[in-house]
Design a protein around this nucleic acid. Structure first.
Lengths: 110, 110
DNA sequence: TTTCATACCTAAGAAATTTAGGTATGTTTG
DNA sequence: CAAACATACCTAAATTTCTTAGGTATGAAA
């Protein structure tokens, strides 16, 4: 597990991107997916994800649909039109941010 | 200027790396260097940097030396032995973190 | 002589996350 | 079959990190 403070500020962007790629997902699934995709390097906590999802929904970036699957209730989230635009913007910004970081942390970059 | 929330958690690592590359720097210089190196994309505020430097010093990662240059006082910071180790570790973690992020945000990565 | 750049600082508030709980059902295992 | 584990949701207090918005002081430029 990486330094947790590195994660700050990236969660929303990751969530939007995952929903853009997968159409719809529920919270628990998002957590597992990130763990799996990063070989356990990134472990999102439920205490971070659920409030983040609620906020994104409140802001109109996500739509929700409650569905019962094998006795348990899942809340499936998907991108709204506004969410799709936000995803595009945030991915762009994230990429520029990563490039900026790289210019500094690459050996003898400056 | 990029989304500011993306910066969270990366400042310490950037500072350590800059000091590792440049030997010693003072606060104001660090801010200018980051601006320059990232073509104004990353703008560290003084309110973020100075407390961060104080904390790193308090933790024993940095050493300080006050020097007067052309009528003004500068506080030159450099890495301690502990700071050098921290730099190495944090760079490694940062790189893994960036890789993790990339596996998710690259088009159709999952 | 006023403005801008340099150079340091702090404190209140906001934002994002961690930690540490809680509830409940289904599945696996000893 | 009972206990443990996995699934699936949730919240609230505390912590960390950063922004915002000040403040002080000197030197250079307009």
């Amino acid at each position: 597990m990486l330094n947790k403070s590195l994660l700050k500020g990236t969660l929303n962007t990751l969530v939007l991107k995952l929903l853009a790629d997968n159409g719809q997902m529920y919270g628990y699934e998002i957590i597992q997916k990130i763990k799996l995709a990063t070989a356990d390097q990134l472990q999102i906590t439920e205490g971070a994800l659920y409030p983040a999802l609620h906020k994104l929904e409140e802001e109109g970036l996500l739509t929700v649909e409650r569905r019962e699957v094998s006795g348990r209730i899942r809340k499936y989230y998907a991108l709204s039109a506004k969410g799709k635009k936000a995803n595009t913007n945030q991915l762009e910004q994230m990429q520029e941010f990563l490039n900026s970081i790289q210019t500094i942390i690459q050996p003898k970059a400056i």
